[in-house]
Nucleic acid binder design. Structure first.
Lengths: 219, 219
DNA sequence: ATTAATTTTTAGGTTTGTCTAAATTTTATT
DNA sequence: AATAAAATTTAGACAAACCTAAAAATTAAT
């Protein structure tokens, strides 16, 4: 099945909101897509007619199996392009989202297969988010939140959950990105802040920042 | 200035038709873009209002300076993506046009600057067509038609002017693409066909094929 | 120089995706 | 349970880009 750019944006939006909240409602999706509730209702009818989601008037809606498959294909395209933009074109990881947003709608299975092969079929994008494989299967990347990790272990940053410009600016300042090796030296119970080692340098991060950083052991 | 996908397709279409014919008329553009004359008229009004072309009702039209600059930027994007698809993703050179047609509309100057740098700012795309530089300047690639070349010189194929699938299939069959080294062994006056050497193999090409192949001396 | 043929434009309509404003349904509050 | 608030949907419009069919202008042919 082939979708318009708008349809793809709605499908992807529903997918992401579902991740956080299970089911999605009209207003939330309108907010997420920067459009109006009425427009969402219109599109829901269309996607429902195409049998991509489970929709009952005034109740919420969720992607069905077909819808989820479509969403994962779009997410795959988006994340592969993000990886390309950072690893091959040298973009900063916090600048690639909008461009990938456009590139992801370029269709053609062969393009994405070849792009994946060219990039070495990476498992995660530059933000640490998992990239679905050709069959829409998400790799399971074992990861733990920074706040629950014992001291003095060598860790690798595997994801940053808040991807707002403000957060990404902070990460850049600390020199932390996906793949960066860090070690926790000390917890401060008072405010949840902690001292960590990054690139042999000591620094303090707030509890709020720590909550958004995910890591795994070893390389 | 920022253009819609449709506007860009019209601008590019006019540019290409101008190359062959000097000025462009409504029907020719409609044919080229696979649309109807009435649609062309509509869009011409829009592009004219945006001061991209010189247009007088019932007379033809041509891109003005602004329009040409816009066209060259689009052509640059298209040809850089084609180069990427062939050189990096390993597509056959006769399969990349449609995909590049989509990719060329992804905006963002920085993307194209970085893509150009990543590719080594090539001068020609996989079909041998020149790639405009950042300022819209077209590199001059000295080249001669195969039919006017003396015998027994080492030549390099620099362009193929007919890019129909039929022609490209033929080129693939002969093992000829941009950069292929060839030598002319014999002209046959009767039908303009000629015997050439490609990859140490002798073969015969028709006069019609020869007319569409361009070469330069040396590497 | 008329008439015929071709080309181009206008007029009016369709589709996709959006919007505002009003109506409806659901949820929350008293 | 009745009413207020919030969420959702419907109704009706609009812009972009396309279409068909008819009218107008240009070019070609007799």
């Amino acid at each position: 099945m082939n979708f318009s750019v708008s349809e793809e944006n709605y499908i992807k939006g529903i997918y992401h909101l579902q991740q956080d909240a299970g089911s999605v409602n009209t207003n939330a999706l309108a907010g997420h897509l920067q459009t109006r509730a009425a427009s969402v209702t219109d599109m829901l009818k269309k996607l429902s007619a195409k049998k991509l989601l489970h929709y009952r008037r005034y109740k919420g809606f969720t992607l069905n199996e077909r819808g989820t498959r479509a969403a994962l294909a779009i997410v795959r395209r988006h994340r592969l392009w993000e990886y390309f933009l950072v690893e091959k074109l040298g973009f900063d990881w916090d600048k690639v989202h909008d461009i990938a947003e456009e590139l992801e709608h370029v269709s053609g299975d062969e393009l994405i297969t070849r792009l994946g092969d060219f990039l070495g079929n990476p498992q995660t994008d530059p933000h640490g988010d998992p990239i679905p494989d050709r069959d829409g299967k998400l790799p399971v990347i074992p990861q733990m939140n920074l706040v629950m990790i014992p001291l003095n272990k060598q860790l690798t940053v595997s994801a940053v959950s808040d991807q707002s410009p403000a957060m990404l600016e902070l990460m850049n300042h600390y020199g932390i990105s996906i793949g960066t090796r860090i070690k926790i030296n000390k917890h401060f119970a008072f405010d949840g802040s902690m001292e960590i080692t990054v690139n042999r340098q000591h620094c303090i991060i707030s509890g709020q920042v720590a909550k958004n950083i995910f890591v795994h052991y070893g390389k």
